[in-house]
Design a protein around this nucleic acid. Structure first.
Lengths: 247, 247
DNA sequence: ATGTGGGCGACTGTATGCTAAAAACCGGTC
DNA sequence: GACCGGTTTTTAGCATACAGTCGCCCACAT
């Protein structure tokens, strides 16, 4: 199996992997792995490119170019773009194509507000049914975060933060809620990242407090802490933004 | 075959872009109507078929069949199916195709719980910034609902209910929240409809009370009422389900 | 110079062809 | 009689081909 790239003999039929990206402004990506649905891989790559700002807001995404860069046909690209639209990453204007979504300040605030609401509920639910095993897992994640903090590892910090929140969400047991949070969170990170470094020490102190409350199974207080935690992030966003707009 | 209705799009729908209203009222058409992509129409039709139970949970949706039935090619069908997946209507198993999602009891409860959370927040926000015009619009929707109620018009009742809730959501001003609610609500209706008739009089009395509180701009009480309202719906769901499982 | 109209290029939307893989079928074997 | 291996059928996945639209540019008229 895994007869991925290049080595497949059947040159006759269709023959698809002749897609050599033309040397261009954008770095060429090597063809993707085969086994899993291609559209998924394409989706991942494009989402990553958007999040990393390699594709900038407002930019017109041409199906052909993307297809060539990724070494696939337009079809998987189209499918990926449509999914990206449904999740708010791009705007798909009929007959015109896909444009990277342009985040507005208003939208960012609404996202942060919604995230706060959802995460608060998930913390409440998580606390109500936390098991000791889960709590100790939380502490593990917490210490991973603190390590990244002391190492001054920005990427690691973001990842650890996401992992911790994600685990709390999963503890809530509400899959629908979890799905929505996943959607919102990812976009929050996109909006938030460029203007603000992680809140750092402060945020992780709050995490520690939250875990303790969860361990005590106190849903109300867990919700309270999570609300304050996410609202502070929201405030932090606004503060940073104002600073940034001044520059 | 099965060339039902105009399978040739350019003939009927298109008609050149002489969409400019000749000689007369230049209607303020804002975003200038665009040729609706076929995938959208296909999406609507399939979603409708799922909601109406014409396609039953678990059923295997074959691209070819749907395409033939609708008189289009597989492509728009594929695109529609993928969007349906992202919104939870079908499960797309790699290399196997699309299956109408099978609702579980657990999921239904989680949906109802999430809906309650979201709608509660939207009511709170709506109340905080309600204008007199908006309130009177709410009363209009309310009386439409009561009319349907006295006419014993089930479909109308469901529609009126949706319209009222949707308007409250729009009043919240939070578009992100609104989007999530739209997603959740539709699925709730799907799960809920088959086992329970609308709660009727009771629900509309609660609506009336809610509108009054919104008119008074009391966010806290609005949230309270909405929470109770949606939680009652949730209870009603469980009650009906237990009755149904007995039969 | 400025406004208008037609032609041209580019890109999306839709249709169809081809391939590979999973499932159903069937016959053989223990 | 049940299980196993190969074969056929079905169907999704991907690629490619085709057609309709949109926007731009430029020539031309005012």
């Amino acid at each position: 199996m895994t007869d991925q790239e290049g080595s497949s003999p059947p040159a006759a039929g269709g023959g698809r992997r002749s897609a050599i990206p033309r040397g261009g402004a954008r770095a060429a990506r090597q063809p993707l792995e085969r086994p899993a649905p291609l559209r998924q891989a394409v989706y991942d790559v494009i989402a990553e490119m958007i999040i990393s700002r390699e594709l900038r807001p407002g930019e017109h995404l041409v199906e052909n170019e993307l297809a060539a860069q990724l070494g696939v046909s337009r079809q998987p690209v189209r499918e990926a773009l449509q999914r990206l639209q449904s999740e708010g990453w791009v705007d798909l204007r009929p007959a015109l194509g896909a444009f990277v979504h342009v985040p507005t300040e208003e939208e960012a605030d609404q996202l942060l507000a919604t995230r706060s609401l959802l995460e608060t509920e998930s913390a409440r639910l998580a606390a109500k049914q936390a098991t000791p095993e889960q709590v100790s897992r939380l502490w593990e994640l917490q210490s991973a975060g603190e390590k990244a903090l002391s190492d001054d590892d920005q990427d690691g910090l973001v990842a650890a933060n996401a992992a911790l929140h994600a685990y709390v969400v999963s503890m809530s047991g509400n899959k629908v809620l979890a799905e929505l949070i996943a959607l919102v969170d990812r976009r929050v990170r996109w909006y938030y990242a460029p203007i603000a470094k992680s809140r750092g020490r402060e945020a992780w102190d709050e995490h520690a407090a939250l875990i303790e409350v969860i361990a005590s199974r106190n849903g109300r207080r867990a919700a309270d802490l999570m609300r304050r935690h996410t609202e502070r992030t929201r405030d932090s966003y606004h503060k940073r933004r104002m600073e940034a707009s001044g520059s």
